[in-house]
């Protein structure tokens, strides 16, 4: 839960990215959220050292989707011992691109008056799902058929007790759009689309059976390396 709830989008809870013992007393925990069409890195900085910390700045390494700070890290007053400050850093997707492993890995450098510290974190790929990700129905059918079935990624979402309506609503809260719905052979088939910030389209079919809490997700994408991350993100969205 947390800050992203107003739009219904999935937001992971904050995790410790940099423990104080690895950063001369600076502890950083954080999460990522998409709010009002903009991506934010929401961080808590805690001073667990015995002296005041000042002069904070942040930099990202090249990453798969060109994420970069869109503004300086604003820590307006010195951080006293035992003090925590919450900062919401807006991010752009116009930074330098380099494919990372895993794809959603982000390497970060943070400096203060004491030293420079480095850590890695992973962002939910769903924060890259843009608001205009509903694909035209004719384009969906054509694209689905164009992408060979052997590059389809299948994934089981187990023990999910949501109705097809609830699934559609929950996914739409994270910019996954229902292009069409059909009932066939006692299954509800949902045809879904999303678009990533780098304009990669992802098409999906989710099979929901009313008597079975295990749903089958099939994903087709012209950049098939993103499919497994999208599958995992659907599971996180539907479970939260």
């Amino acid at each position: 839960g947390g800050v992203g709830m107003a739009t219904g989008a999935y937001v992971p809870s904050k995790a410790v990215w940099l423990p104080a013992m690895k950063a001369k007393g600076l502890e950083i925990s954080g999460t990522f959220a998409r709010r009002g069409g903009a991506i934010h890195m929401d961080v808590s900085l805690t001073n667990k050292a015995m002296s005041v910390m000042t002069d904070f700045a942040i930099q990202f390494n090249k990453n798969s989707f060109g994420l970069a700070p869109a503004a300086p890290l604003q820590v307006l007053t010195p951080l006293s011992p035992n003090q925590t400050v919450e900062v919401s850093l807006p991010l752009s997707t116009n930074g330098p691109v380099m494919k990372m492993e895993p794809l959603n890995n982000l390497q970060v450098a943070v400096k203060n008056n004491i030293d420079v510290f480095y850590f890695s974190c992973q962002y939910p790929i769903s924060m890259l799902f843009v608001e205009d990700g509903r694909m035209d129905r004719q384009l969906f059918l054509g694209t689905w058929k164009d992408i060979p079935s052997d590059s389809e990624t299948q994934f089981q979402i187990k023990d999910c007790h949501l109705s097809a309506d609830a699934v559609c609503n929950k996914l739409q809260g994270s910019n996954v759009f229902t292009v069409a719905r059909r009932t066939a052979d006692a299954q509800e088939l949902l045809y879904l689309s999303l678009k990533l910030t780098n304009s990669i389209w992802v098409l999906a079919e989710l099979r929901v059976q009313s008597a079975n809490p295990n749903h089958t997700l099939s994903v087709r994408c012209r950049a098939p390396e993103v499919s497994q991350y999208v599958c995992q993100s659907f599971e996180l969205i539907l479970r939260n």
Partner: peptide
């Protein structure tokens, strides 16, 4: 939904996927 042939195409796709 508009009957522009797409409804039918989605129905065929769903049938085909549900009964491969």
């Amino acid at each position: 939904e508009l009957d522009d042939g797409l409804d039918e195409a989605f129905s065929r796709l769903a049938e085909c996927r549900a009964n491969p």
